[in-house]
Design a binder for these strands. Sequence first.
DNA 1: CGATCTTAGCGAAACGATTAGCTGTAGAAA
DNA 2: TTTCTACAGCTAATCGTTTCGCTAAGATCG
Lengths: 336, 336
Amino acid sequence: MATIRDVATRARVSTATVSAVVNDSAYVSPELRTRVLAAISELNYAPSQAARSLKRGRSQLLALVVADLANPFFARLVWAAEAAVAAWGYSLVLFNSDEKPENERRILARIRALSCDGIILVPVDVVSTQPQRDSEGEPIPTVLFGRTVEGQNTDTITIDNVAAARQVTNYLMDLGHTRIGTITGPLHLTTGRGRLEGMLEAMRARGLTPAPNHIRAGEFREDIAYSVARELLTQPEPPTAIYVANGVMALGVMRALADLSLKCPDDISIASTDTIPGIGGLRPRLTRTEHPVIDMTNEALRLLVDRINRGSGADARNIVFQPSLVVGESCAPHKS
Amino acid sequence: MATIRDVATRARVSTATVSAVVNDSAYVSPELRTRVLAAISELNYAPSQAARSLKRGRSQLLALVVADLANPFFARLVWAAEAAVAAWGYSLVLFNSDEKPENERRILARIRALSCDGIILVPVDVVSTQPQRDSEGEPIPTVLFGRTVEGQNTDTITIDNVAAARQVTNYLMDLGHTRIGTITGPLHLTTGRGRLEGMLEAMRARGLTPAPNHIRAGEFREDIAYSVARELLTQPEPPTAIYVANGVMALGVMRALADLSLKCPDDISIASTDTIPGIGGLRPRLTRTEHPVIDMTNEALRLLVDRINRGSGADARNIVFQPSLVVGESCAPHKS
DNA sequence: CGATCTTAGCGAAACGATTAGCTGTAGAAA
DNA sequence: TTTCTACAGCTAATCGTTTCGCTAAGATCG
């Protein structure tokens, strides 16, 4: 394709003038401006991003690093982020760390090499705490999304996991359930730990404690939740209600119920924090919390762009979103 | 961050030597090599992609343009593509055209400016037929995914939509159904048109024709399929089986059934081409075709990388994948 | 009317890598 | 000893922009 020189030659001006027209960075007389614009469209010129990034030190690229691209929650994040990133005039470079710290490290190095202007990161590891530095040694603006890591000093967007779990648990207890089980996420993640804590806290507040073997680790995975749910429900004294820590696992649990020929909510009540698209439409509709992914994403981008433009001076903002309880038909009053 | 000059100075060699070490592009004595590597790690050096792209004319970026990021089929494509792209040493730039030709145009211009090395495109418009040309006037290597546009001369990866629809329709007819309705995708897309044709063809082969008001347009959208299904099922002489053209719409149909208190498969049989994750696990498990998204994606990348390395010389390859029928419990024999 | 100020537009030096072509040294062949 | 060959490693040009600092011409002023 044509370069800025070709345009300059054709319009009989200097490259500096072409640049000024393209970027609106200096006054150019209407006369020259039209000549330049004509040349640009005749030659079908578009500035080379590579040359531009090299010179400006900015790439107009934002990186999105999700921890598990197969999880519909993150798929929605990707969808929302693509739109938001485009709206701000950037392009989105997508990475999947697949919950592996070593992948995360590799990805962050790559992001640095690409000189991305900012990062939205669903962190897997504490290493992401240490901000990535760009070519001038400045940290690359980063927003942590969904999870946080200890002692970081970064902008974060999260939801109130404890409150989400508390809401759901209270709802189950309000229906009279006392023998409540749970399938948790990984406890080294704030999402996993927070949701378990919220549940325990809510029960404790009413003088209840779940039986130790009613608390099972589901790793936020459909297949594991499936088998764990089968175990949970086939033991001698199964819970009368299960609180499931995320949407993907809720699907696994529903599948386990079907395979065990258990009726929900007649035989067992199920409720979850987080959901997956679609599951809320099918019968029984799942009682769950919905998390405002789109708002969260837009806010993350606002924060990120702000940080890019303002530099690392301002101190970190931590924005916590509130989930909302959506009641379906997957829970019934406890019959004693 | 450090530049190649800093590394050269510190290792007391020239930049050419550093480059040779980094790229393994020339013999460097072990002595110097270790000095260079030491300097690199001490300075935490990573080559600037911007400078590299400018000089080499390659960016190590591949673009993925999907037509609807909210559709789980494409979400899976994104997931598979991210992994495959990384495996080939590239990074993935993601775009969503949202089925809008004007977005597609804007996106392709952007891809050109970013000098992406290749494109995987789920085309919306015929405009994408005209190959995008890069800075040297060479067309940017492109693989069309999932759909094709008339008269193009590009590599393509598709599934056999006609065969998929035929399989499903035959299955329904084998169960004795003759009054079969369908909810179609947009007929200007090869996926939408092909699936309708396959269904009609299969029925014609057995001397059947669907009633005109049993053929409804669902636009591949959950909400539209939901209301269309309600209409279809509440009319005087409803079909006894419905063939739904994609997974998202199948979900809408199941939701409509639930809201109409119709039992599947007792009251009506449902089958679809394509599916969405999860729906196959819940009862009744949907009878559907599964499409090998991962294989298709890997193949798309093989084609693309091949084309990048070989240039535009070789002629276009069109690879068609076969869907496989997965039988669930959503269809019952027709009771007369 | 000369001095000073504006300002449109230009020339050329970066940005950080790659790489063609050159230099200098050492060993081999004559 | 001289010439040749081989080759490790260096110098410098180059990619396509942006942008600093300059020039020249017109406007303004005392």
